[in-house]
Design a protein around this nucleic acid. Structure first.
Lengths: 119, 119
DNA sequence: GCCAATAGTGCCGGAAAGGATACCGTCGTG
DNA sequence: CACGACGGTATCCTTTCCGGCACTATTGGC
């Protein structure tokens, strides 16, 4: 587990919200998970799909997701190394959560959103 | 808007996920929103409900939420100042998202979760 | 005149997150 | 023999986040 952001789980409401957020928070995890929802991908494929991420960051985020039990990492002992990443069952169960986030964003931010608080 | 974490919205899937996350991410926002879902609260009430948050942080997070159009800040010109915080319509629309997060956490983390990746 | 309550603001410093860059090991190819 | 593909590591540095603490303004009460 990455680490709950307030170690203590006593903030009655919002606590579990934060706990879940802690798992998918991290600048690229949402994107990675979204890609993996479409199927298994190997490292280089992920990289190609996310040009803005450095190798270090990608590795890093993948390791955290793995540690949190959200994705599986399968190493194929081949000549040019090949590593496949796929969602675990637990990872798949995040689909609804990610969908909720995406849907909200599409409605309230993307294109349709009124830029009321234009910075 | 706080600032989209990857300025560019071209990460096809996951993009809106990240955009939404950017709004509710911030160590205390999830908690604050969860509290406000239960009704309007004044500054000091929020403080009492979240003992671990410093005044500075609370103010800060509230300001960001306000800038993102998720909460309303109502100042009552009274002798001991009184400021009420409540969710905007937009803020209320996050309820489903927060519920999804909380629900997932309750099922997959809280108490029932198998601590497979114990740190 | 002094204290208290409410809602902040300002500064300072440490910790963590994120980014850039370079290097590693293996094997097939030219 | 050097080179490239693949999947990383290691190192360093910058930026951001966050916590602690002190200080402010207003007005009523003692």
């Amino acid at each position: 587990m990455s680490k709950l952001r307030h170690s203590r789980l006593d903030c009655t409401p919002g606590c579990m919200v934060e706990a879940t957020l802690a798992l998918i928070d991290g600048k690229w995890k949402g994107v990675i998970l979204s890609h993996l929802l479409e199927g298994t991908l190997r490292f280089s494929e992920l990289r190609r799909r996310m040009p803005g991420v450095t190798q270090r960051m990608l590795t890093n985020q993948l390791r955290e997701l793995e540690a949190d039990g959200l994705i599986d990492r399968t190493i194929h002992a081949q000549v040019p190394p090949r590593v496949d990443y796929s969602l675990t069952e637990r990872g798949h169960s995040l689909r609804e959560v990610l969908d909720a986030l995406r849907l909200w964003g599409e409605i309230h931010i993307g294109l349709f959103a009124q830029p009321k608080a234009a910075a």
